[in-house]
Amino acid sequence: MERWTKWLGLLLLVGMILNLYFIFIYAPIEKTMGIVQKIFYFHVPSAFAAFLAFFVVALFSVAFLMKRNYFYDRISYASAEIGVMFTTIVLVTGPIWAKPAWNTWWSWDPRLTTTLILWFIYIGYLVLRDFTGEDERGARFAAVFAIVGFVDVPIVYFSIRWWRTIHPQPVLMGGEGSGLAPKMLFALMFSLAVFLILYFYLLLTRLRLEKARMDVNEMKKAIALQEQ
């Protein structure tokens, strides 16, 4: 796992440097919004990384409920933490972009509101998981909570298609008149790939921590048995 993390870290470093080149030099400045639109190249990939993270949480929560393997529960916990971090990026960069574009920091728009709800759901999951510790019932309850919470992910994604919103329409697989200039599209796709690598890099690093935590618990149990 450590070798993988190192290689992924190296790939991430090179990818991120190239990413910044494509965002700031290669991609043209958008005509209506100006330079501030470049926030988009980190804002959108962060949202996709968060969706992937919460999908992994739900997937391993199902696996945990089926197999009762605690490592699956730990993968869910690690991925939820990373997902919350990416959602925080989305929720902070969004208003910074919105202020010059919409002349307001925040609007209770469907996309923004459902994203905020998503953030609260997984903060709730992390608090719940912290609070219940190694208790099996707690872990099961948290797994069910994570699976139900995942329902909000497609709602966030489709919110701009389902309801009237001031949020920009989808640039990928959107309707007529949507889309990006080829250079902008390339920069976005490249950034999406880099954020995908970033997610897996953080997940592996975070799982190393969980592995160490499991080792500590095992050792504590072994010492307690020795002392009896």
Partner: peptide, 19 residues
């Protein structure tokens, strides 16, 4: 180069959160 401050703030927040 209008709104450069917002762009700087956006990216600064991302790096701060990541690191």
């Amino acid at each position: 180069m209008e709104n450069l401050g917002y762009l700087f703030a956006g990216y600064a927040v991302v790096w701060l959160l990541l690191f």
